[in-house]
Design a protein around this nucleic acid. Structure first.
Lengths: 202, 202
DNA sequence: GATTGCAGAGAACGAGCGTTCTCTGGTTGC
DNA sequence: GCAACCAGAGAACGCTCGTTCTCTGCAATC
């Protein structure tokens, strides 16, 4: 049995390595921050929710601020992937654009949906944390740029993308506050009108 | 000089009465909460900003939560008035609807604009404070109902109002995050298309 | 003019925050 | 078998929070 302990330096199942722990910590932090707001969650609550000791948490991350930052960056990755996947299922350029609002609709229907984490974080921390404000800004900017590539596919004029982005943002906050997924469908219907209008005036 | 001190029970300039103090406290609280988030402002900061002692603040309001609530209700009143005033300047129903987006544009241009206080508060506190969530919900609901009366004026189908509301919400968050007033104009242009489309398919 | 009452300033309080430190117990290497 | 080390649990630290209390001094009343 001597050779069992030997390879413990590699990440075995009994002692998950730092990367796996970091992942677990970020998952718990994301869930808690999203549900209660960043300042509504203390490090002790994150410790008990993740099962990771405070000492280890502070070896995995230098500070709570760093965890907030990583959570937001993780959300950005997941959002980008989710949108891209939904879009990729469609072939026709117009349908690819509209797929975004269907993606929103299914997201809004999730039980713990509480709006866009970036908008929420910006409202809570944007005024006091330049780093958070910057991350949120770059996330939203990336989404608009992505929309621009999609609208370019159908040869729509450049003013269309910001309009479709505004619809998506509005749908997110309206759905969060009203607790309904309906805004996604309303935004989709509006998007169809805007797209067709932009194409006909091209 | 005996008669000078006699009428001090009435609110004289030397000793402003509670209502005026309450007003001043709410004004300071509104400014601070909006700029830094509710949890980013302590009662001590509110005391020094308003010039009202803690003891007096707690005689004017039972708790910080009550101040938050009153600030939001005050914002609701000001928003309702501001929108109604902007709308009232126009005669034609279509222009009355679009006046809302002009109102947004001038609001977004204010130096300390940091988005919709209700959306911000919902993101920060909506998950932990049912009272805040309820106030935000009823504020947004009131706005949609108001939009419905305006869209009814032009005989538009009922699906138009929620779409215009989504545009307004999206413009607010997009303007806050991007730091630009442009989303108001983009939303206005989109609203024109949606209105004309809704009217032509009536 | 002595007394009562009240307002203001800020210290104090208990709780909770983010962060660090101490202690304990088990594992590793010789 | 023993010394050296390391990880985990959670106590402790310094701070800030919302809220209350104490102390001081002034002003009104008989």
């Amino acid at each position: 049995m001597a050779n069992v302990s030997a390879p413990l330096t590699r990440g075995s199942s009994g002692s998950p390595d730092d990367d796996a722990l970091r992942e677990a910590a970020l998952e718990a932090a994301d869930r808690l921050f999203y549900a209660k707001g960043v300042q509504g969650v203390g490090m002790d609550e994150l410790r008990s929710a993740s099962g990771i000791s405070l000492k280890r948490l502070y070896r995995l991350f230098p500070s709570k601020d760093a965890i907030v930052e990583q959570v937001l960056l993780g959300r950005h990755r997941k959002w980008t992937e989710g949108v891209a996947t939904a879009v990729a299922r469609e072939i026709q350029p117009r349908e690819r654009l509209l797929a975004i609002y269907d993606f929103l609709a299914s997201w809004f229907s999730e039980e713990d949906f509480r709006g866009c984490a970036f908008i929420n974080s910006f409202g809570e921390l944007g005024g006091t944390s330049p780093r958070v404000a910057e991350i949120v800004r770059s996330h939203k900017d990336g989404f608009q740029k992505y929309l621009s590539t999609l609208t370019a596919e159908i040869g729509a004029p450049p003013y269309l993308a910001p309009q479709l982005a505004i619809l998506a943002e509005g749908a997110q906050t309206t759905a969060a506050i009203s607790g309904s997924a309906e805004p996604a469908r309303q935004a989709r219907a509006a998007a169809e009108v805007l797209i067709d209008s932009a194409l006909s005036h091209r």
